[in-house]
Amino acid sequence: MTTSVSAQTDSPLTIGGRAFRSRLMVGTGKYTDNQTMVDAIEASGAEIVTVAVRRVDLDRSQQEGILHHLDPDKFFLLANTAGCFTADEAIRYARLGREAGFNEFVKLEVIGDRETLMPDNVGLIEAATTLVQEGFQVMAYTNDDIVTALRLEDAGCATVMPLASPIGSGLGLLNPYHIRTIKQRLSVPVIVDAGVGTASDACVTMEQGVDGILMNTAIAKADDPAAMARAMRLGVEAGRLAYLAGRMERREVAIPSSPTTGLLD
């Protein structure tokens, strides 16, 4: 039987020399409570889980960091540089994240506009170049622009992560053509990061041939985060499998599926 085609034909996702089973990566922000977050992450099947670096709240010093809730032996914790608006800030946060964490990976964000949260391409490439030189495996969040994606690959990024639509918008994949172009032209893995709103978005995004998806809000802000996490897991798997299976040709005419011969008079 060939019921698990995916496992038979798909290879693991390899980023910066590390192999991952799951092509779905999830964030840990915006959950109503820690248990809801942990349940959702487990339901998602994700291995790579993003976290942010922030000041310890000294006035309530017993407030726990996220490491009290996520086992670093069970999940691959990926520090981000969210909230950084310059290359220097992002480099500083990346270094702190490496120290707080357990690996050389960083999800690099350099934001250029507070309203749209669109990346600052110049700052992004500058920060990526420095961090690669410092030995980081840089996973760079970028817009869906092929030129920036190529520059980030040239800078030595381990993966390039174009957005489907703006962070937290849930608008889904707005430009499949740009995403396909980036995937076709780059050698490093392409992970779509941000904008996926529901399971069909995840599926359509994976059908473009990208290597994975990173999402946060779509799961955290669902009415039932654990259920949406499972839906996303299935959506990612379905889209991946459909991509590997190779879809039929589109034709703008109807072609009957049943024989046109042998019909009754």
Partner: peptide, 10 residues
Amino acid sequence: VELVHFVGGG
């Protein structure tokens, strides 16, 4: 002095 740790984020 800055004292930081990991918190939830995307």
